[in-house]
Design a protein around this nucleic acid. Sequence first.
DNA 1: TATGACATGTAATCTGTTACATGATTAG
DNA 2: CTAATCATGTAACAGATTACATGTCATA
Lengths: 193, 193
Amino acid sequence: MNPPKSQSKIPSLGYALLGLLQKPSSGYDLRKVFSSTSLKSYSDSPGAIYPALTRLEKQGLIRGKVEEGSGMRRRQLFRLTPKGLSELKTWIIRPITREDLLWGQQEIVLRFAFCETVAGPAAAVELLQSLETALKAYVAALHDELQGLPPAMPGSGRLAFECGVRSTECFLEWTRYALATYEKEGRKKRGTP
Amino acid sequence: MNPPKSQSKIPSLGYALLGLLQKPSSGYDLRKVFSSTSLKSYSDSPGAIYPALTRLEKQGLIRGKVEEGSGMRRRQLFRLTPKGLSELKTWIIRPITREDLLWGQQEIVLRFAFCETVAGPAAAVELLQSLETALKAYVAALHDELQGLPPAMPGSGRLAFECGVRSTECFLEWTRYALATYEKEGRKKRGTP
DNA sequence: TATGACATGTAATCTGTTACATGATTAG
DNA sequence: CTAATCATGTAACAGATTACATGTCATA
């Protein structure tokens, strides 16, 4: 009666966890990653992590097993299931859309960060290419909007808008830099013909 | 018994609404601003806006009045109360901390965008100066972290980190550009001595 | 043996999302 | 008249925050 609800919408934190679980980890390990590395934008609170892990396990995307080592603290190691890996891969390699850009850089860069180990360098290049396309259109649209701003707008309002434009341009430059890096690597491996 | 709970933590959306309500608006107006301008990162759904307005009114930060025009649709105009204006100002001019940077650019730029009309150009300059200080330290820390990355890290992981560094540097450049803009304006008004 | 770090979880509460509901006014 | 748009809300649900609760192990 309903359309098949194959994908039961996973929040961003869920995908971050899936990506990190390429290396089997406990909830505590994951919390430490979020609190100590540059993924600080995600919550490291137990009230966020543990329920999220439980949900992912219920969906069959990860599987936890309590470690039984002599003289060790109780510790549950989670690892990706094949289904979880496939879900992660699907999320990562979906081409970048304008919507993705509106929801923010963070998630896009996270997808890219996981891309090489999950789907290989070729997929990373494809992801960057779709990102470049989307960004070029978006930057152009932002410039148009900047032109159309009411001249009565106070200085700080216009400057704030310019900040958004610059930040997007910077993201585009990084995308090109990343593409160039992959190209260089490719040439190295093929022996710079 | 409890410490005085003078500030009852307002979420980011609440402050965005307070800032926009410098110009009296209806809930529908505000939704249109969120859906049509570059504030698209905030939700324009009625289920977010209307409850948020109700909360702000209960806290005495805004006041709504139903408009009674001949042959007009029912429409409730909200405007800032003095208490709301003061709360908004306090939020805006608090110096930028490292925590603010971790929570994201978005909110900082929003604060700056409202700063000039709420607190004047001098406050905007002070805000930018505290931002510059915080950003300089943060960029340095990010460079250190980049040096310390494990060499075993896959290419896309390192590139993703570099994206964060570049984006922060870009933000710092914008901050200096904005400061320069204010300085130029100041000289113009004082007659370029 | 007492302190602190390790490790996991739960409960209350708040906010946002999604979807639905309602009525008034204007355009065709 | 009827369809679309204006304008406001509500209800059910999911997810995050905060604070608390529990117990283990190492070490001083």
